[in-house]
Design a protein around this nucleic acid. Structure first.
Lengths: 344, 344
DNA sequence: CTGTTAGCGCATTCAT
DNA sequence: ATGAATGCGCTAACAG
């Protein structure tokens, strides 16, 4: 096969139809076609019909790459997130999609696996498409990343938490505040002997912030954590279950365990169910995030709810409302709330 | 503010630095800069250093939009999926990201909310970026979508199931086969009185395929379903829990319920736990998908595992291995396997 | 190994 | 209301 003669330029990948072809068929100039395709300015009803007809007949699809080059209008927004396995990020993406629905921007998505070097590569790659904006998770970036972002002049949204000062705008909730609130809430409920079940802080700085907030709340009351169970890897139901078993055996006096998130906490509930523990009397469990699954447990999980969808949506709204980067950084707090549940 | 004189063209959004500036500083021609930025062909070590230095100093970021226009090389692959709330789609995306890691293509993602009209709009929008390929979920498309896809000449991957004939290539598993296997497995285990707990078929055609397969397996054994509990909306743990309660009260004789997926089945397990039912003796539960959560339940969920990550990864591999659309459609089966678990 | 010449497909002045 | 020119930033022949 491959019978193409030696002189052939392109393997005629597909007989491309451009404004040119449409213009020829419709007997108008290219600019007229361009105007019509973009419904800009005034065009005679009649010629419009003629052009649209020709376009349809030829199966014309405007080449937005060329369009974008010519007009210098961006058409992408870059989204760089650590992973897709943690359900919260797909939820943020949903909010982003929702926010984008009214614009004609498209989201390009890259994942980093919590690796700042990969984040840097992703950002570099995305900046080359001259996006309207770039959305990242958190504040931990390499200096090179930060410099690129800064110099690009485009809008930069750092999502999820608002516990550091943003490059441009941060959208999320205070994770330290969430930890603090969790601690105060549980203390108010009468708990005194606290345990902590968590996952890798190196990768998940926000979990660390919540932990710090929790400790601060305990300190306010003259208390401190009396046991920790922490694993190396990412959070998961399985890890939460195993660590709960470990915590229970190492520190049976613990009344309530605060978990790094709902995944871990659901694991704790499963352990309790399997052991026949009565929640919250024998052992109490408090999570973080307010995942759907927690609400459907035989006993709804006590947790602190955040709104990830809203984070994505607000992030997009922020950049749509104000396409130029403002002089001073801003913070958009999407809040959180205690969900009492029945496990603590 | 806004002191810009009336004659100023662009609000100097950012003093753009192009190949031109780099070339001037490095004392070479633009093409040399271009070659170096793309590490194409041979360049003298010395000039390369000079150019790289200039590029770095100026903070040059190649404009790939222009690059793509000039070279006619695509830089995007479009991904159109129904939603991000069903965990299986983020998993597919993970596979896509993994597959894409070695190429320099970027994924643009659109969601349709299971609406074929929105799918059509998404496809139209994405085709305008001249992507290398477009990845969709399933085979249900409007005729217009199908026509655009066809005419585009680019590679089209229909993901998730392989129960219909693809436009170009399908990657996934046979959902009818999965249903059939589920039925045979349970019959072999001795179950005779089957119930079905499911969600909206209008939106989820694959759930319907599994149902059909299940019915076929029952028919082989001279059996048929003796009860259904089906809800209107999307699948969820909550719906599964509620429908299980309904099924149990309406048809207490049912020995085993087959669920439309693991979300629903986990809801069933939660109902059973809350009611103190012994699984599988009092009531047996069988899911679909093999989600992580099912494995961590006090008793691991009996289910049928598919590999969503693999679907995304194979989809990308397929289009990377063979960038031109082949003459005849192909099917890539990613398979499935029974996970016995302890609930059926 | 490097510079020159032409576009890629479209949007945008500026005329008319 | 429409057409003719010019260029977005870069890559791709083709020389040399």
């Amino acid at each position: 096969m491959k019978p193409t003669g030696p002189k052939q330029r392109l393997p005629d990948r597909k007989s491309k139809v451009t404004v040119r072809e449409v213009a020829l068929v419709a007997q108008v100039s290219e600019s007229t076609v361009s105007r019509i395709m973009r419904n800009s300015s005034l065009v005679a009803e009649e010629t419009r019909d003629r052009v649209m007809e020709a376009a349809r007949a030829l199966g014309y699809v405007p080449n937005r790459i060329a369009g974008s080059l010519a007009s210098l209008d961006p058409f992408l927004v870059g989204v760089v997130i650590p992973s897709l396995s943690n359900i919260v990020f797909p939820e943020v993406l949903q909010g982003i999609q929702a926010g984008l629905a009214r614009s004609d921007l498209q989201a390009v998505i890259s994942t980093t696996d919590y690796d700042m070097a990969r984040e840097e590569a992703a950002v570099r790659g995305i900046l080359a498409w001259k996006p309207a904006a770039i959305l990242l998770a958190g504040f931990d970036h390499t200096v090179a990343t930060r410099r690129m972002l800064d110099q690009s002049g485009i809008r930069v949204v750092e999502m999820m938490d608002i516990d550091s000062s943003p490059i441009d705008v941060a959208v999320g909730t205070s994770h330290r505040g969430a930890g603090l609130m969790t601690g105060r809430h549980l203390i108010a409920k009468g708990y005194r002997r606290f345990g902590y079940v968590g996952h890798d802080w190196a990768a998940d700085r926000r979990a660390r912030l919540r932990y710090d907030g929790l400790c601060a709340a305990l300190a306010e009351a003259g208390l401190s954590l009396c046991a920790h169970a922490i694993c190396e890897g990412a959070s998961s139901v399985g890890a939460g279950r195993a660590l709960t078993a470990q915590l229970r055996s190492e520190a049976p006096q613990v009344e309530v365990a605060v978990y790094s998130n709902d995944d871990m906490a659901v694991g704790g509930v499963f352990h309790a169910l399997a052991q026949g523990l009565r929640l919250p009397d024998d052992f109490a469990i408090f999570g973080f995030n307010g995942l759907d699954i927690g609400r459907e447990l035989p006993q709804p999980l006590s947790t602190l709810r955040t709104n990830r969808f809203l984070i994505g949506q607000r992030a997009i709204e922020a950049i749509l409302d104000q396409p130029e980067r403002p002089a001073t950084p801003a913070v958009i707090d999407t809040g959180f709330e205690i969900f009492p549940g029945a496990t603590a």
